[in-house]
Computed example of a mutant assay.
Amino acid sequence: MENRQRRKMRKIISLFLMTSCFALANCANKTNSFDRDIAVIDIQLGSGDFEHANTKLTAMNLDHPNNPDILLRLAEVNRAAGRQLAAIEFYKKTLKLNPASRDAWMGLSKIYLKNKPAAALEILENLSKLYPNDPQVIDDYGVALDLNGRYEEAQNTYKRAISIDPSMISPEINLGLSLGLSGQVRQGLAIIRPYAAASDAAPRTKENYALLLLANGQPDEARLLLESYLPRKDANETLMRLSDFWGGRAELARARAIRGECCNKP
Protein backbone atom coordinates (compact mmCIF):
# COMPACT_ATOMS: atom_id res chain seq x y z
CA MET A 1 0.00 0.00 0.00
CA GLU A 2 2.79 2.38 1.00
CA ASN A 3 4.81 1.49 -2.11
CA ARG A 4 1.78 2.16 -4.29
CA GLN A 5 1.38 5.63 -2.76
CA ARG A 6 5.04 6.37 -3.28
CA ARG A 7 4.83 5.36 -6.95
CA LYS A 8 1.76 7.54 -7.37
CA MET A 9 3.52 10.50 -5.75
CA ARG A 10 6.56 10.01 -8.01
CA LYS A 11 4.29 10.06 -11.07
CA ILE A 12 2.63 13.26 -9.89
CA ILE A 13 6.02 14.90 -9.27
CA SER A 14 7.33 13.72 -12.64
CA LEU A 15 4.25 15.06 -14.40
CA PHE A 16 4.63 18.39 -12.62
CA LEU A 17 8.29 18.66 -13.57
CA MET A 18 7.55 17.81 -17.21
CA THR A 19 4.78 20.41 -17.35
CA SER A 20 7.05 23.01 -15.77
CA CYS A 21 9.83 22.26 -18.24
CA PHE A 22 7.46 22.62 -21.20
CA ALA A 23 6.16 25.89 -19.79
CA LEU A 24 9.65 27.23 -19.23
CA ALA A 25 10.77 26.14 -22.70
CA ASN A 26 7.74 27.77 -24.27
CA CYS A 27 8.38 30.98 -22.33
CA ALA A 28 12.05 30.94 -23.34
CA ASN A 29 11.11 30.42 -27.00
CA LYS A 30 8.72 33.37 -26.88
CA THR A 31 11.41 35.55 -25.28
CA ASN A 32 13.97 34.52 -27.88
CA SER A 33 11.49 35.17 -30.68
CA PHE A 34 10.68 38.63 -29.31
CA ASP A 35 14.36 39.51 -28.99
CA ARG A 36 15.01 38.32 -32.55
CA ASP A 37 12.14 40.41 -33.88
CA ILE A 38 13.44 43.49 -32.06
CA ALA A 39 16.94 42.86 -33.43
CA VAL A 40 15.57 42.61 -37.00
CA ILE A 41 13.58 45.81 -36.54
CA ASP A 42 16.69 47.63 -35.29
CA ILE A 43 18.51 46.56 -38.45
CA GLN A 44 15.61 47.81 -40.58
CA LEU A 45 15.58 51.14 -38.74
CA GLY A 46 19.33 51.47 -39.16
CA SER A 47 19.09 50.85 -42.91
CA GLY A 48 16.15 53.21 -43.40
CA ASP A 49 13.62 50.47 -44.12
CA PHE A 50 10.94 52.25 -42.09
CA GLU A 51 7.96 50.78 -43.95
CA HIS A 52 8.73 47.16 -43.06
CA ALA A 53 9.78 48.14 -39.55
CA ASN A 54 6.48 49.96 -39.01
CA THR A 55 4.45 47.01 -40.31
CA LYS A 56 6.21 44.58 -37.97
CA LEU A 57 6.03 46.93 -34.99
CA THR A 58 2.33 47.53 -35.47
CA ALA A 59 1.67 43.78 -35.41
CA MET A 60 3.91 43.30 -32.37
CA ASN A 61 2.14 46.12 -30.55
CA LEU A 62 -1.11 44.20 -30.85
CA ASP A 63 0.49 41.08 -29.32
CA HIS A 64 2.52 42.98 -26.71
CA PRO A 65 0.57 46.14 -25.75
CA ASN A 66 2.31 48.62 -23.49
CA ASN A 67 5.76 47.21 -24.16
CA PRO A 68 8.25 50.12 -23.90
CA ASP A 69 10.70 48.55 -26.38
CA ILE A 70 8.00 48.41 -29.05
CA LEU A 71 6.57 51.84 -28.23
CA LEU A 72 10.01 53.46 -28.40
CA ARG A 73 10.64 52.03 -31.85
CA LEU A 74 7.19 53.05 -33.04
CA ALA A 75 8.07 56.58 -31.93
CA GLU A 76 11.35 56.43 -33.89
CA VAL A 77 9.62 55.14 -37.02
CA ASN A 78 7.00 57.88 -36.90
CA ARG A 79 9.59 60.59 -36.26
CA ALA A 80 11.64 59.39 -39.24
CA ALA A 81 8.50 59.45 -41.40
CA GLY A 82 7.68 63.01 -40.34
CA ARG A 83 4.59 62.01 -38.35
CA GLN A 84 5.59 64.15 -35.43
CA LEU A 85 2.33 64.12 -33.47
CA ALA A 86 2.20 60.31 -33.51
CA ALA A 87 5.86 60.16 -32.55
CA ILE A 88 5.31 62.48 -29.59
CA GLU A 89 2.47 60.30 -28.31
CA PHE A 90 4.55 57.13 -28.59
CA TYR A 91 7.47 58.80 -26.81
CA LYS A 92 5.16 59.91 -24.02
CA LYS A 93 3.71 56.40 -23.69
CA THR A 94 7.24 55.01 -23.50
CA LEU A 95 8.18 57.49 -20.79
CA LYS A 96 5.05 56.71 -18.82
CA LEU A 97 6.20 53.07 -18.65
CA ASN A 98 9.90 53.86 -18.38
CA PRO A 99 10.51 57.42 -17.11
CA ALA A 100 14.28 56.90 -17.20
CA SER A 101 14.44 56.10 -20.93
CA ARG A 102 17.28 58.22 -22.30
CA ASP A 103 16.41 57.36 -25.89
CA ALA A 104 12.78 58.43 -25.46
CA TRP A 105 13.76 61.77 -23.92
CA MET A 106 16.34 62.33 -26.67
CA GLY A 107 13.85 61.52 -29.41
CA LEU A 108 11.23 63.81 -27.90
CA SER A 109 13.74 66.64 -27.57
CA LYS A 110 14.74 66.32 -31.24
CA ILE A 111 11.13 66.97 -32.23
CA TYR A 112 10.85 69.89 -29.84
CA LEU A 113 14.09 71.40 -31.19
CA LYS A 114 12.18 72.09 -34.41
CA ASN A 115 9.09 73.75 -32.95
CA LYS A 116 9.39 74.10 -29.15
CA PRO A 117 13.01 75.07 -28.41
CA ALA A 118 12.21 76.12 -24.84
CA ALA A 119 10.72 72.68 -24.10
CA ALA A 120 13.70 70.99 -25.77
CA LEU A 121 16.08 73.06 -23.65
CA GLU A 122 14.37 71.99 -20.44
CA ILE A 123 14.61 68.30 -21.39
CA LEU A 124 18.22 68.49 -22.53
CA GLU A 125 19.34 70.54 -19.55
CA ASN A 126 18.08 67.75 -17.30
CA LEU A 127 19.62 65.05 -19.50
CA SER A 128 22.98 66.84 -19.47
CA LYS A 129 23.00 66.49 -15.68
CA LEU A 130 22.06 62.82 -15.82
CA TYR A 131 24.52 62.03 -18.64
CA PRO A 132 27.37 64.56 -18.24
CA ASN A 133 29.79 62.41 -20.26
CA ASP A 134 27.46 61.58 -23.14
CA PRO A 135 28.69 63.66 -26.12
CA GLN A 136 25.42 63.30 -28.05
CA VAL A 137 23.39 64.62 -25.13
CA ILE A 138 25.81 67.52 -24.61
CA ASP A 139 25.87 68.35 -28.34
CA ASP A 140 22.07 68.45 -28.52
CA TYR A 141 22.02 70.56 -25.37
CA GLY A 142 24.25 73.05 -27.18
CA VAL A 143 21.80 73.16 -30.11
CA ALA A 144 18.95 73.89 -27.70
CA LEU A 145 20.96 76.71 -26.11
CA ASP A 146 21.65 78.15 -29.58
CA LEU A 147 17.98 78.02 -30.55
CA ASN A 148 17.14 79.90 -27.37
CA GLY A 149 19.66 82.63 -28.16
CA ARG A 150 22.21 81.64 -25.49
CA TYR A 151 25.14 81.58 -27.91
CA GLU A 152 28.08 81.84 -25.53
CA GLU A 153 26.72 79.02 -23.36
CA ALA A 154 26.08 76.96 -26.49
CA GLN A 155 29.65 77.42 -27.70
CA ASN A 156 31.07 76.36 -24.35
CA THR A 157 28.76 73.34 -24.42
CA TYR A 158 29.96 72.30 -27.90
CA LYS A 159 33.56 72.58 -26.69
CA ARG A 160 32.63 70.34 -23.78
CA ALA A 161 31.18 67.75 -26.20
CA ILE A 162 34.36 67.91 -28.29
CA SER A 163 36.50 67.35 -25.19
CA ILE A 164 34.44 64.27 -24.33
CA ASP A 165 34.74 62.78 -27.84
CA PRO A 166 37.22 64.61 -30.12
CA SER A 167 36.34 62.29 -33.01
CA MET A 168 32.73 63.50 -33.09
CA ILE A 169 32.20 65.93 -35.96
CA SER A 170 28.76 67.32 -35.16
CA PRO A 171 29.68 69.51 -32.16
CA GLU A 172 32.56 71.10 -34.08
CA ILE A 173 30.28 72.03 -36.99
CA ASN A 174 27.65 73.27 -34.57
CA LEU A 175 30.31 75.39 -32.84
CA GLY A 176 31.20 77.01 -36.15
CA LEU A 177 27.56 77.72 -36.92
CA SER A 178 26.98 79.13 -33.44
CA LEU A 179 29.93 81.49 -33.83
CA GLY A 180 28.48 82.69 -37.11
CA LEU A 181 25.04 83.20 -35.61
CA SER A 182 26.55 85.27 -32.80
CA GLY A 183 28.36 87.56 -35.25
CA GLN A 184 31.75 85.83 -35.41
CA VAL A 185 31.24 84.77 -39.01
CA ARG A 186 34.87 84.42 -40.10
CA GLN A 187 35.71 82.21 -37.14
CA GLY A 188 32.67 80.09 -37.92
CA LEU A 189 33.65 79.76 -41.57
CA ALA A 190 37.19 78.71 -40.63
CA ILE A 191 35.84 75.87 -38.47
CA ILE A 192 33.27 74.53 -40.93
CA ARG A 193 35.31 75.00 -44.13
CA PRO A 194 37.32 71.74 -44.04
CA TYR A 195 34.24 69.69 -43.29
CA ALA A 196 32.20 71.35 -46.07
CA ALA A 197 35.04 70.77 -48.56
CA ALA A 198 35.34 67.05 -47.77
CA SER A 199 34.21 64.66 -50.51
CA ASP A 200 31.82 62.94 -48.10
CA ALA A 201 30.44 66.14 -46.57
CA ALA A 202 26.80 65.88 -45.52
CA PRO A 203 24.31 68.21 -47.27
CA ARG A 204 23.50 69.81 -43.91
CA THR A 205 27.18 70.70 -43.40
CA LYS A 206 27.37 72.32 -46.83
CA GLU A 207 24.15 74.22 -46.21
CA ASN A 208 25.48 75.53 -42.89
CA TYR A 209 28.64 76.70 -44.65
CA ALA A 210 26.59 78.39 -47.40
CA LEU A 211 24.58 80.15 -44.69
CA LEU A 212 27.74 81.66 -43.24
CA LEU A 213 29.08 82.53 -46.69
CA LEU A 214 25.96 84.65 -47.21
CA ALA A 215 26.53 86.35 -43.87
CA ASN A 216 30.09 87.09 -44.96
CA GLY A 217 28.91 88.76 -48.17
CA GLN A 218 29.82 85.88 -50.50
CA PRO A 219 26.53 84.97 -52.27
CA ASP A 220 28.26 83.72 -55.44
CA GLU A 221 30.40 81.29 -53.46
CA ALA A 222 27.32 80.14 -51.57
CA ARG A 223 25.47 79.50 -54.84
CA LEU A 224 28.37 77.52 -56.33
CA LEU A 225 28.55 75.39 -53.21
CA LEU A 226 24.84 74.60 -53.27
CA GLU A 227 24.94 73.81 -57.00
CA SER A 228 27.75 71.33 -56.36
CA TYR A 229 25.27 68.87 -54.88
CA LEU A 230 21.81 70.20 -55.78
CA PRO A 231 19.99 70.72 -59.09
CA ARG A 232 20.05 74.40 -60.04
CA LYS A 233 16.38 74.95 -59.20
CA ASP A 234 16.77 73.39 -55.74
CA ALA A 235 20.00 75.33 -55.20
CA ASN A 236 18.22 78.60 -56.00
CA GLU A 237 15.37 77.80 -53.64
CA THR A 238 17.79 76.88 -50.86
CA LEU A 239 19.78 80.06 -51.45
CA MET A 240 16.61 82.13 -51.16
CA ARG A 241 15.62 80.35 -47.96
CA LEU A 242 19.03 80.94 -46.43
CA SER A 243 18.94 84.59 -47.49
CA ASP A 244 15.49 84.95 -45.95
CA PHE A 245 16.89 83.58 -42.70
CA TRP A 246 19.38 86.43 -42.41
CA GLY A 247 16.77 88.91 -43.62
CA GLY A 248 14.36 87.73 -40.96
CA ARG A 249 17.00 88.07 -38.27
CA ALA A 250 17.80 91.61 -39.43
CA GLU A 251 14.14 92.60 -39.35
CA LEU A 252 13.76 91.12 -35.88
CA ALA A 253 16.86 92.93 -34.65
CA ARG A 254 15.57 96.24 -36.02
CA ALA A 255 12.18 95.70 -34.40
CA ARG A 256 13.78 94.93 -31.07
CA ALA A 257 16.08 97.94 -31.33
CA ILE A 258 13.02 100.17 -31.81
CA ARG A 259 11.43 98.60 -28.72
CA GLY A 260 14.67 98.95 -26.79
CA GLU A 261 15.18 95.22 -26.31
CA CYS A 262 18.58 93.58 -26.03
CA CYS A 263 20.03 93.03 -29.49
CA ASN A 264 21.66 89.65 -28.83
CA LYS A 265 18.43 87.75 -28.28
CA PRO A 266 17.24 85.44 -31.08
Rank of each mutant, 00 (worst) to 15 (best):
S243K: 12
A235S: 12
K56E: 12
Q136E: 13
L15P: 02
D234F: 03
N115Q: 11
A59I: 04
D63G: 00
H64F: 13
K159A: 09
L130W: 05
R259N: 11
R10L: 12
A255G: 11
I164H: 00
A118E: 15
A250N: 10
E251H: 02
A75H: 02
I192V: 09
A161N: 08
E152W: 01
L17F: 12
L74Q: 12
M60A: 07
S109M: 09
L24P: 01
D49V: 06
Q5H: 03
M168S: 08
L175W: 06
E251Y: 05
D165K: 13
A253Y: 04
N236C: 03
K92V: 02
L97T: 07
P203L: 10
R256A: 07
K114M: 08
C263A: 13
A119C: 02
I191W: 04
I13V: 15
K116V: 00
G107V: 10
D234L: 11
L214E: 04
Y112L: 13
I41P: 10
D37P: 01
Q84F: 10
I192F: 04
E227Q: 15
P65S: 10
C262L: 12
A81D: 10
M9R: 14
N29I: 09
D69M: 06
L175R: 07
L45E: 02
R249Q: 15
L189C: 07
I12P: 00
D220T: 11
L57Y: 00
N67S: 11
K11G: 11
M106C: 07
L226Y: 04
K92T: 11
L24M: 13
N126W: 02
K114I: 08
G48I: 04
I192Y: 06
A253V: 07
D165Q: 15
K114R: 11
C21G: 08
P203T: 07
L57A: 06
I169E: 11
F22H: 02
F245T: 01
I88G: 01
T31S: 13
F245Y: 14
S163F: 04
S33T: 09
C21I: 15
K11P: 02
C262H: 06
A215W: 01
N66D: 15
P231G: 09
S47R: 11
